[in-house]
Design a protein around this nucleic acid. Structure first.
Length: 491
DNA sequence: ATAGATGATTTCGC
DNA sequence: GCGAAATCATCTAT
């Protein structure tokens, strides 16, 4: 027998004056049953009412509603109600060990309480065991018990702002999903456009991106609105149920407030899921439209040449300084970070397979050597006719004077392989020799990129890393000038 | 269609 | 914060 029955049983065992009737053990007989010979009509009346209450949960909704209405209108109802309240007051003193059974019974009963069935059946709220029988000032823990599954987590204290929720909110705001409409676009899209160079060929895709983002935004707001509406409706529904229940049992305003709080929290968690999904959608959209990797374009041939020229002419220390990077970026019409990426990739790939890059190295060495030779020729001429200390400023428009020593190294002993001097190599070497001569004469050299490099041999150490470029190779740089200076000293 | 090239990103150590 | 290394994703030549 469930607790309601038990309670009513207790009620049945107590007359209005509070005296025990029938030892409080059994329900009075059904109305059609046998009334005692004393035939107390009032007693029969009470028994009748109690029986109706007892059986009400076993009846269909319509039947029960009709009977409930009849009971509510019954003349004995106020008196019985006050007795019920009295008994409930007394249940405050129930010892703790009664609680589990009582709670369980309550939860069992809840399933049979049709008006509240939706709360349970919707599986809407998480189930959580109660550590102890909770009782309010009315001594009636029914709320938690009736809605046994209702979590009361955080009911007492205000929840601190959820950091995850804050992150989601911030992101949605940053992406222009949750904030005010920004003309269909988002700051993020604009930023991404700017980052990718803002080239015109991106504009179509960006408008596409904006369109999709607007779609997401619309869906998000529609769903949010739906949730809010559902929350309000549900709250109203529950309030109505409580109001109805308050006619048969005492319900404190605090309880109602708590109930509303629980509902709102639950809807908030659903909203959080919506926000999470929206964020995921935006991330996917971003990666699809704005991820630089997806929009990769090879650098122009000219840009690659410029970068390669620098790389092979600084093979001993291919780490351009910040200034050099900026200059390179400018010349190649790419960003500084792209220059950094390029050098990073180049270094690692070169190191991994030097043999493969041999040919390329030779090619650029030759190319640069020719340029250098011209520069040297001009320098020599300058040297003869003008001030001997004036460094050559170069005239090729590329790098003023490449570090030809690297080229020399490249020809001679790349990766320890003896390079069987091609015609190009021989030419380069002679040019380098000339260069060295000039450099020694002029007492220094500064390339236009701030990469001040005297002859500095490239040294891939045993670990595959570039050794300190300022350390000259004893084998390959017999004429190394003193005071070799690198702008790349950060490395 | 495929393999290799290449620019970008991520992870890790310093 | 920078660079090495690994990896991803795309481009390009075949």
């Amino acid at each position: 027998m469930d607790d309601q029955s038990r309670m009513l049983q207790t009620l049945a065992g107590v007359n209005l004056a509070g005296h025990s009737v029938q030892g409080g053990m059994a329900l009075p007989p059904p109305p059609h049953g046998h009334e005692g010979a004393d035939g107390d009509g009032r007693k029969q009346d009470i028994g009748d009412i109690l029986h109706q209450i007892m059986t009400i949960t076993d009846q269909s909704l319509d039947e029960a509603q009709a009977k409930k209405h009849a009971l509510n209108c019954h003349r004995m109802k106020p008196a019985l109600f006050s007795v019920l309240c009295e008994i409930k007051e007394k249940t405050v003193t129930l010892d703790a060990e009664c609680a589990p059974l009582w709670i369980n019974n309550n939860r069992h009963r809840r399933k049979r309480q049709t008006p509240n069935a939706d709360l349970q059946d919707a599986n809407f709220l998480p189930h959580r065991p109660f550590p102890k029988m909770p009782c309010n000032s009315y001594g009636e823990p029914t709320f938690k018990q009736i809605y046994g599954g209702l979590s009361i987590r955080g009911a007492q204290e205000e929840d601190p702002p959820d950091p995850q929720l804050m992150r989601l909110d911030n992101m949605l705001l940053a992406e222009g999903v949750s904030g005010p409409e920004k003309g269909g676009g988002s700051a993020a899209a604009a930023a991404a456009a700017a980052a990718s160079g803002g080239s015109s060929d991106n504009s179509i895709e960006h408008s596409d991106y904006r369109a999709k983002l607007t779609q997401i935004r619309q869906i998000y707001h529609t769903e949010l609105e739906k949730y809010e509406q559902a929350c309000n409706e549900f709250t109203t529904h529950v309030m109505n149920l409580l109001r109805e229940q308050s006619r048969t049992r005492p319900i404190s305003p605090k309880e109602i407030e708590r109930m509303v709080g629980i509902i709102h929290r639950k809807f908030s968690s659903i909203q959080m899921q919506l926000k999470q999904s929206t964020c995921e959608a935006v991330m996917i959209l971003r990666s699809r439209f704005l991820d630089a990797r997806r929009k990769r374009r090879n650098f122009s041939k000219q840009a690659t040449e410029i970068l390669n020229e620098y790389f092979y002419s600084h093979l001993s220390n291919p780490y351009p300084s910040e200034e050099a990077k900026e200059e390179l970026a400018k010349k190649c019409s790419i960003t500084v970070s792209q220059v950094s990426n390029w050098f990073g990739n180049k270094r690692i790939r070169y190191k991994k397979n030097i043999g493969k890059f041999q040919e390329e190295a030779n090619l650029y060495a030759a190319k640069t050597a020719v340029t250098a030779a011209h520069a040297v020729a001009a320098a020599v001429q300058n040297n003869q006719t003008n001030s001997p200390t004036t460094p050559n400023s170069g005239s090729s428009g590329s790098f003023n004077l490449p570090n030809s020593g690297d080229m020399f190294m490249n020809m001679q002993s790349l990766n320890g392989d003896s390079y069987q001097g091609s015609q190009v190599g021989a030419n380069v070497q002679s040019q380098v020799d000339t260069l060295r001569h000039v450099i020694n004469q002029t007492g220094g050299y500064s390339d236009g990129l701030g990469g001040n490099s005297l002859y500095s041999p490239h040294n891939l150490n045993a670990n595959g890393g570039w050794q300190d470029a300022t350390t000259p190779s004893s084998v390959t740089s017999p004429t190394e000038g003193p005071g070799s200076v690198h702008s790349d000293t950060s490395n």
